[in-house]
Simulated assay, not measured.
Amino acid sequence: MINLSSISSNLPSTQPQWVKRFAKLGLAAKGVVYCLVGILAFMAAFEIGGSSERNVTKQGVFRFILAQPFGQILLALVAAGLVCYALWRLTQAFLDNEHKGTDAKGIGRRLAYGFSGLVYGSLAYGCFRMVMGSQSSQSGDSSRQTVVREILQKPFGQWLVGLIGVSIIGIGLYQIYRALSGKYLKNVQTSSIKTELKEMIIRSGKIGYIARGIVWGLIGYLFIKAALEANASEAGGSSSAFVFLEKVSYGSFLLGAVALGLFCYGIFMFVRARYEVINTSS
């Protein structure tokens, strides 16, 4: 088992104010990304402005920002925010600011923080590449399909891809559980929110986490489908999930509802940036 406590003992002590600033800037940047994902997905659902659900990815959001006036500056700010978010998550993983401990549950939670940090660090890297004028040759879904194709060629590859799919569905169910149980509000100082806004903000967070859980669940289902059919092209990310929703009965309305939920999730990230208690002591 990875001994995170021994790793953290060799790292320099955390500067509390920097941790708070990184967390708040990171959450705000994440809010921008998810709000734009929601807007673009809603436009794709009802074919507004020629938008397509196949292009609604985080990379698509970055391209959208880049196309706006002062796009390079705006995208660079978003990239910097994502770097802050990644560093905050890595700090939580290695310095255990959240005091999750070193038992199995605590290690699992800290590994999840570390994985999140790596994912958003990768997004920030891609974002900076776009700022510098480099365009990725593969979309997020295409790169996932390439990885799945390689796994399928390994011994027990279908089982591994299926296991990944089940794990992704588990993440989605946990997001929905957090929403319905109210755990998404655990570290948010709701008492500081204006009374007239509190109910609307709390509801937007619940809707947002449910929508995010649905998207994760659909991505997991597509991975399982890829495993069962031994077909990597069935796997994908958020854009593939949106395409799947669009094809079912009343798909435009379902995709539109999920899109509004993702927008709500983005709004709630701004709320977290403003009102969340950021633990800094290790």
Rank of each mutant, 00 (worst) to 15 (best):
P16Q: 14
A23Y: 05
A23H: 04
A23Q: 02
L25W: 13
L25H: 12
A28F: 09
K30V: 08
Y34M: 11
Y34L: 08
V37F: 08
G38E: 02
I39E: 10
L40I: 08
A45S: 11
A45V: 04
A45L: 07
A45Q: 04
F46Y: 12
E47K: 14
I48P: 00
G49M: 09
G50L: 02
G50Q: 05
S52G: 06
E53I: 06
Q59R: 14
R63G: 13
A67R: 12
Q68P: 07
Q72C: 06
L75I: 01
V78N: 00
V78I: 09
A79M: 03
A80Q: 08
G81E: 04
G81V: 06
L82T: 06
V83P: 00
C84N: 07
L87R: 02
L87G: 02
Q92P: 00
N97L: 13
E98N: 10
H99P: 00
K100A: 10
K105D: 13
G106S: 05
R110F: 00
Y113M: 05
G114C: 07
G114S: 09
F115A: 15
F115N: 13
S116F: 10
S116Y: 11
S116D: 14
Y120F: 13
G121H: 03
L123R: 01
L123M: 12
V131K: 00
V131H: 00
S134Y: 14
S134I: 13
S137P: 06
G140S: 14
D141K: 02
